[in-house]
Nucleic acid binder design. Structure first.
Lengths: 259, 259
DNA sequence: TATCATTTGTTCGTATGTATC
DNA sequence: CGATACATACGAACAAATGAT
């Protein structure tokens, strides 16, 4: 048993003690922590203090708490899904990763009309409140059970120019890219990766446990005119997925002067 | 004033009410929320309930709480730093981003001996407890104040083979790559992006506010023998930084058969 | 099926400490 | 220094989920 003498708030001392106990191996990954009552005994503190300490460890992502069962040391397993971000291969139009994994669609996608926001507008090089065609999908990796939210946003102007696109805005990305290519565009992509804490509805949709950030991937496809044609977004729990980029040491491309 | 009648825990109803008030614009970004005492008044609940609700919004990253001052709506500003992950250009050996930004080293780096772990071992295609040379740096972007933790890990075997590397394992990455190239290696990179909640020491080192995940970038450099030569890691708060990858639609590379 | 003990979740009350202005 | 606001800590009670009897 670790003694509690260090400075700082009492609950933080308790949290530090439990943290060290975990890291030292007293509690192994997956194993249950002592119950609140036992922790009260062990550290001679009140229940609110113990709960505060447990909450701190939970926010750190070190433990997992389940109502009615107890607290468990989170096994910091490697992500079960690696999203390999090489050139997207268009096969039969399904959601296919380069490693062969296939995402299933959990629900039927329904296209909708929307507008650009502060976040999506700049990516599409549009102002705010510009008309968009959107389509959301909830994807599931059957192998690992990992869920992901996929979104396609097409500027209204772009969809207008291509009849097949305007008629079926809920096509899968691969099909959309094919349509764009057939329309004479030479495509190039650029992806932006961010991480943030999930909103309540994202938490439930992706079935995320505590202290799990979201990896938010935005892929903008440019066409021949160097204008953004379509924005593809993928949101996935960071505990289950990682992104892999292969940056081969090619010849240095022509360098555009920029600040 | 929003009424509280929906199902769920009381503090969650309060949290939802405040959340909607924020999203509806009643409390603008940067503006202070009502004090705890005022929220108690407003929603007719006890102090613990209010604190619980505030804690929930804090974990969501929606608000920022400062001791003695109050709670403030977090302005969901765009990241101030974009890490542009194109081919790394070696200039004078400083930490330079393609967009021209330069990171300053906040402290003098000190090389150390270490070992592979469950996380770093597989990336370097080594087992666990293999000898490594490490070097940590705390970087600061003077323009935005953004901090980042940089780490270089070189397998002992690799360092042994190149004298200049063994003598100065604390060289900057650009210099290390130069040494490897001079040693006859043709380099290629591969990066893996993950996100997770920070550990306590990472929180303080990066000066992260609440509910801020860390973007964890691992860059493995392979040499001619297709063997990992060096692992470079960058950890940065996800509220300040984002990663940008440019994936040009090249010819499809030769495809290795894999599961 | 029903009941019970265990464990965590929620909510109240109260008091005191500490940071900010 | 005082006023305000958040942080910490204790005590107590009941609710809800879980698993075993």
């Amino acid at each position: 048993m670790t003694e509690i003498q260090r400075p700082g708030a009492l609950y933080q001392q308790v949290a530090a003690a439990i943290r060290e106990a975990i890291l030292s191996g007293e509690f192994e990954p997956g194993a249950p922590l002592p119950s609140e009552a036992q922790l009260i005994e062990r550290y001679k503190v009140s229940r609110p203090t113990v709960r505060n300490a447990v909450a701190a460890l939970r926010a750190e992502g070190l433990i997992d708490v389940r109502h009615g069962k107890g607290s468990f040391v989170r096994s910091d397993g490697q992500p079960s899904v690696t999203l390999d971000r090489r050139v997207n291969r268009t096969s039969n139009g399904q959601f296919v990763l380069p490693n062969g994994a296939v995402w299933e669609e959990a629900e039927e996608p329904t296209p909708y009309r929307s507008h650009t926001t502060k976040a999506t507008g700049p990516l599409l090089e549009l102002g705010e409140e510009e008309a968009l065609l959107g389509c959301d999908r909830l994807l599931v990796d059957p192998a690992s059970g990992t869920r992901a939210m996929h979104r396609t946003l097409i500027p209204f102007e772009v969809a207008e120019g291509i009849q097949a696109l305007a008629e079926a805005p809920d096509s899968r990305p691969a099909a959309v890219y094919e349509l764009l290519t057939k329309a004479g565009h030479k495509l190039s992509w650029s992806e932006t990766v961010r991480a943030r804490m999930p909103l309540p509805d994202e938490r439930t949709a992706l079935q995320l446990s505590d202290a799990t950030p979201i990896l938010h991937l935005s892929r903008v496809t440019h066409g021949t005119a160097d204008r953004p044609l379509i924005l593809e977004e993928l949101r996935v729990g960071a505990d289950r997925a990682e992104l892999a980029y292969r940056i081969t040491a090619d010849k240095e491309p022509a360098r555009r002067t920029r600040s």
